[in-house]
Design a protein around this nucleic acid. Structure first.
Lengths: 221, 221
DNA sequence: CAGATTATGTCAGCCACTGACATTCGGCAA
DNA sequence: TTGCCGAATGTCAGTGGCTGACATAATCTG
């Protein structure tokens, strides 16, 4: 019994059904983003997206819980990547250093992986702008982010071997870090010349550099 | 022409129309909160709220842009109070000190003003819990908070005489402060014995105390 | 009291989203 | 291959949030 014929292998190509599912999911995301960018999020109906992929509206809602989710799907992948990178940071780094390295790494990865399609850096940045001027989209994005922060708290607390129910520092750090990150995203302007991933990394760096100074003393020059 | 007869006085009792409007608005908020607390936010329809105040659904939507807004209305008032207090803080205080004093003051004020009705402290805390376990409500709450943070940035920058477009510290401080505040709200548990405003103030204080330590070094004891 | 505003009600309709049921399709074993 | 099971999809009907248009009734103003 060296090698099984084909299907019973434990870690195997996912089979036709799963592949088909993945394809419709990707197609839905792709079509949705294209339509959102052309005619705006609010003015795009779920029916339009479903029709573009030639599935029923009902099927759309079996893939995504709501219209927001399809818009934020690619962002969710990036968040997962960030978490993954954070877990891999060496223990010598302080919590703040580890967070910083992980977020920079996540942006760099995105740039390396694919330079086109709905997961590219430019698409991600278009998405960020789209989020900012759609109130409902911004709202559910923020909710996702705060959920992610809870995960962050757990990871950070474990890294440092403290109990997050007693020691407030993990929660405080995650909250402050998340807030600053959001501020950086918000200030990113799409009409500057250098729009590569490095410009976003540089922006995040500049913001994080200001965290400690912002808390101390007066700033009058 | 010393004193006008009655109506043309510039700062005057608002007149029947305005008073009536205020009354329906208050009634809508009150009815909505009562229904939300009894049967939950999602399971309460706008029709129910409107019927309870004997008003058409259409009228409800002339007072509130959406169902979320009526739930968050009392919180919005508290936020306005916070902004107001912040503006009144003396210039000698550092930005961080001023923010801290303002948020504590806002909670104390709420406690002093009314001990009952939808604006009391207990009602506010019930509301916070309600927000936490309604995804859509949490989402729009977070959106409101980030909008408020923009106002904060302007005020802080003006206090310190810096240009928020160049100096990132106002944005960073507002973001970090907002994040930590949210973490404090989140950790507030309604089933502890001391539920007064002071317990919330103490909680916020503990969280803010951890901001600087959370950013520095390792925490292993 | 008459005319200009303004608040409200009514109605029709769009769209996001859901449950129920029927149908079809892919996986798997006899 | 065949036949069965479960998963994916389509269809349909319905609920609820929300909006525009228009008519009506209530206030305000002179």
């Amino acid at each position: 019994m060296a090698a099984q014929p084909a299907p019973p292998a434990p870690v195997q190509e996912p089979g036709l059904r799963a592949r088909k599912k993945q394809r419709t999911r990707d197609a839905l995301i792709e079509a949705a983003h294209r339509l959102f960018l052309v005619q705006g999020f609010a003015r795009t109906t779920v029916d339009e997206i479903a029709d573009a992929v030639d599935v029923s509206q009902r099927t759309f809602f079996r893939y995504f819980a709501n219209k927001d989710e399809v818009a934020l799907a690619v962002l969710a992948e990036a968040e997962d990547r960030f978490i993954q990178l954070l877990r891999a940071r060496p223990a010598e780094e302080t919590p703040f250093q580890a967070l910083r390295a992980a977020i920079v790494g996540a942006w760099r990865d995105r740039a390396d992986l694919r330079n086109t399609g709905p997961c590219s850096v430019t698409a991600a940045l278009e998405l960020i702008r789209m989020i900012e001027d759609s109130p409902t989209l911004l709202a559910s994005h923020l909710r996702r982010v705060t959920e992610q922060e809870r995960v962050l708290v757990g990871i950070i607390a474990e890294r440092e071997g403290v109990d997050p129910a007693v020691d407030l520092r993990p929660a405080v750090l995650a909250a402050a870090f998340g807030g600053v990150l959001r501020a950086a995203h918000l200030s990113w302007s799409p009409d500057q010349e250098d729009n590569g991933p490095e410009s976003m990394v540089a922006l995040i760096d500049r913001y994080l550099d200001q965290l400690v100074p912002a808390l101390a003393g007066h700033w009058r020059s």
